[in-house]
Design a protein around this nucleic acid. Structure first.
Lengths: 196, 196
DNA sequence: CCTACCGATCGGTAGG
DNA sequence: CCTACCGATCGGTAGG
């Protein structure tokens, strides 16, 4: 007989997803086993399946949660009425902060999405492409209004998003500068450039 | 009885390594099976082991080949006698071109090295750390001589290296700008910044 | 939530 | 270079 899902099930599932995000970050999706995850959660592997449907579902939940967060944010930015350069800065800071605060999930969504299965894979790729187009459009507006250098907007998006994902290295490093200082440095380098 | 290794063995091995780099890029190291690789090479899986010792050896060879290329290059740059900003530009262009021309190997070395087993893993990590320190030192020199903005040099290295690895997205994209134009755009964005 | 277990697939070996 | 096969491990299920 089907069990009735209670609030406790939901929070238990959230614990599992959080642990999965950590594990998928540490080992990579394919190298992470459900037995590894069970150890992290403190149950037997088989018990996980009382809360989740499959390993694939975990990856799916992580990736689409992150996608929703960024989609919601770019909606806000687009309708904010700010000038283009400010819109760009807001987006960039949001990416940096998500990478600082919501690190494992964002990392997994960024690097492990390719292990999604269709139809989720195609859906995710479309969302990703769409997000980048909207990001590029904001840069284009900045170029048109003369506040951003004449560069290829897609290349700029590519650089910015990958630069932010470099915060992974920062997380790993032993003697690291603070998150705030990192953020300001990244803003300076990407906006003002390296050359004086 | 042990077989005598001939020149043909070496080239066969190189074919296998090249195919492995492609496969590891496509699927990721863990998700790529030796049976997948065998199909790519056009033999049975078991036959691969006449040329290689293990799957791990393939990853090892790819990662250390790439590390050697970049180490050799930074040696040249350090002893070139060029001013710091030119040294930086030379390094950056080399990274971009390697990512354009030697794409699969560089990508695998960059993203899949974590699946190396010790003692290779530690060795690789040390080389990587060392390389980044030398790269940062060149940026520091540029800051001291007043030609580079006062930013945290480690953060700059992190941004630059990850931005370059973003060329992965460019390779995947369908209607892409030329490699030359991509290179110039990347140089402009990272050196002069996005803001006009 | 656990014990017991399954079919599939993995990297790799033996032997020719 | 192939056929045949191995032990280990995987994601997941049955049944309680």
């Amino acid at each position: 007989m089907a069990r009735i899902r209670t609030a406790k099930d939901v929070s238990r599932k959230e614990v599992i997803i959080k642990a999965a995000a950590k594990l998928f970050h540490e080992k990579g999706y394919k190298a992470a086993s459900m037995r590894d995850l069970a150890v992290k959660v403190g149950v037997e592997a088989a018990s996980l399946y009382n809360h989740i449907r499959s390993k694939a579902e975990l990856l799916h939940d992580i990736c689409f949660d992150v996608a929703n967060i960024f989609n919601a944010h770019i909606n806000d930015v687009e309708t904010s009425g700010k000038p283009p350069l400010e819109k760009f800065e807001t987006l960039l800071r949001f990416h940096i902060r998500q990478m600082l605060e919501n690190f494992e999930e964002v990392y997994v969504s960024d690097r492990e999405w390719r292990y999604l299965a269709d139809p989720y894979l195609s859906n995710f790729q479309n969302q990703r492409r769409n997000y980048r187009k909207r990001f590029a459009a904001i840069i284009e507006q900045g170029i048109e209004s003369g506040v951003i250098n004449k560069i290829d907007a897609s290349t700029a998006v590519l650089i910015v998003l990958h630069a932010v994902s470099g915060i992974e290295s920062w997380h790993r490093s032993t003697h690291k500068i603070s998150g705030e200082i990192l953020e300001e440095n990244m803003m300076t380098i990407l906006i003002d450039g390296l050359k004086k």
